[in-house]
Amino acid sequence: GKEPRKRGRRPKSSKGDRGEEPSQKKGRAEPPALPVQVRDPFSKPPVSQLKKTGETFLQDGPCFEVAPKLAKCRECRWTHSQRSKNMPNIFCRFYAFRRLRYTKNGQLAIAGFSDPHRDAAEEDLKLWLPQTDCPPPDLDVDMTKFLLMQVGDHFCDLLEQEKEAVSIHLADDKTIAWKRVVQGVREMCDVCETTLFNFHWACGKCGFVVCIDCYKVRLFTPLTCPSRS
Rank of each mutant, 00 (worst) to 15 (best):
N86L: 12
S84N: 13
W78M: 08
L108H: 11
R77T: 12
H80E: 15
G106D: 10
L125A: 09
A111C: 09
R98W: 04
H80Q: 15
N86V: 10
F94M: 01
F97Y: 15
M87E: 12
F91M: 07
L125V: 07
K104F: 00
W78S: 06
H117S: 09
R101S: 14
G106I: 09
D124W: 00
A111S: 14
A111I: 03
Q131N: 11
P88R: 08
M87C: 09
E75Q: 08
K85V: 14
K85L: 14
Q82I: 10
E75D: 10
R101L: 08
W128N: 13
S81Y: 02
W128F: 13
Q82A: 13
F113Q: 01
F91I: 11
S84Y: 06
E123P: 05
I90K: 11
E123V: 11
L100A: 00
K126W: 03
R83V: 08
R77I: 04
N86T: 08
F91V: 12
R118C: 05
G112R: 14
G112L: 11
E122Y: 02
F91D: 13
I110Q: 02
H117F: 15
L100M: 12
Q107P: 01
S81N: 07
R118D: 11
D124F: 00
T103K: 06
L100P: 04
I110G: 01
G112I: 09
K85F: 08
M87W: 07
N105Q: 13
P88Y: 06
F91C: 07
D124I: 01
I90D: 08
K104V: 00
W128D: 14
K85Q: 15
W78C: 05
A109M: 09
H80V: 15
R77M: 12
G112F: 12
F91S: 13
R99D: 04
R98F: 02
I90Y: 07
L125S: 06
A109R: 10
R77K: 15
Q82E: 15
D124A: 00
A120C: 09
Y102V: 06
R99G: 01
